[in-house]
Lab assay of single mutants.
Amino acid sequence: WVPTKREEKYGVAFYNYDARGADELSLQIGDTVHILETYEGWYRGYTLRKKSKKGIFPASYIHLKE
């Protein structure tokens, strides 16, 4: 896992994603996520609506905010 280059990196989910394991994070369309790390097509972070739950999710489900 590699920390993100920018201190504040955010994105928005444009697909729903159902977590398949305890380390994964479920997403709903429109969720804003804070991205902490990246690795081979995956991000690690949390949604702003539930900051206490961190997990991994596919990068392809996220539109990055500039």
Rank of each mutant, 00 (worst) to 15 (best):
W1E: 07
W1T: 08
W1Y: 07
W1V: 07
W1C: 10
V2Y: 11
V2C: 12
V2W: 08
V2H: 09
P3D: 08
P3Q: 05
P3K: 06
T4F: 08
T4N: 09
T4P: 10
T4I: 10
T4S: 14
K5D: 14
R6E: 11
E7P: 10
E7Q: 10
E7C: 15
E8M: 13
E8S: 11
E8I: 11
K9M: 14
K9E: 08
Y10P: 00
G11C: 10
V12A: 02
V12Q: 04
V12N: 01
A13L: 02
A13Q: 01
F14P: 00
F14R: 14
F14T: 13
Y15L: 15
Y15H: 14
Y15K: 15
Y15M: 15
Y15T: 13
N16K: 12
N16P: 12
N16S: 10
Y17Q: 00
D18G: 05
A19I: 03
A19P: 05
A19N: 03
R20E: 07
R20M: 09
R20W: 06
G21E: 09
G21A: 11
A22C: 10
A22H: 09
A22K: 12
A22G: 10
D23T: 06
D23P: 04
E24N: 02
E24A: 03
E24M: 04
E24K: 03
E24D: 05
E24I: 04
L25R: 01
L25N: 01
L25T: 00
S26H: 04
S26T: 10
L27V: 02
L27T: 00
Q28G: 05
Q28C: 13
Q28M: 11
Q28K: 14
I29S: 06
I29W: 05
I29L: 06
I29V: 12
G30S: 02
D31V: 07
D31W: 05
D31K: 01
D31H: 03
T32F: 15
V33G: 00
H34A: 13
H34Y: 15
I35L: 14
I35R: 00
L36A: 02
L36F: 07
L36K: 03
E37R: 03
E37Y: 07
E37V: 04
T38S: 14
Y39A: 09
Y39C: 14
Y39V: 07
E40T: 06
G41W: 05
W42N: 00
W42E: 00
W42F: 04
R44N: 04
R44C: 14
G45S: 06
G45T: 03
G45W: 07
G45E: 01
Y46L: 03
Y46V: 06
Y46C: 12
T47H: 12
L48R: 05
L48T: 10
L48P: 05
L48H: 11
R49K: 14
R49S: 13
R49T: 13
K50H: 14
K50D: 15
K51P: 15
K51T: 10
S52Y: 12
S52Q: 11
S52A: 10
S52F: 12
S52I: 07
K53D: 08
K53S: 07
K54G: 06
G55N: 00
G55C: 06
G55W: 02
I56V: 10
I56S: 04
F57N: 01
F57E: 00
F57I: 01
F57P: 02
P58K: 02
P58M: 05
P58N: 02
A59M: 09
A59T: 06
A59S: 13
S60V: 10
S60T: 09
Y61R: 05
Y61C: 15
Y61E: 03
Y61H: 15
Y61T: 11
Y61G: 07
I62H: 00
I62P: 02
I62M: 00
I62C: 08
I62Q: 00
I62R: 00
I62E: 01
H63Q: 13
L64V: 09
L64R: 04
K65S: 13
K65D: 11
K65L: 15
K65W: 15
K65A: 11
E66F: 13
E66W: 13
E66H: 14
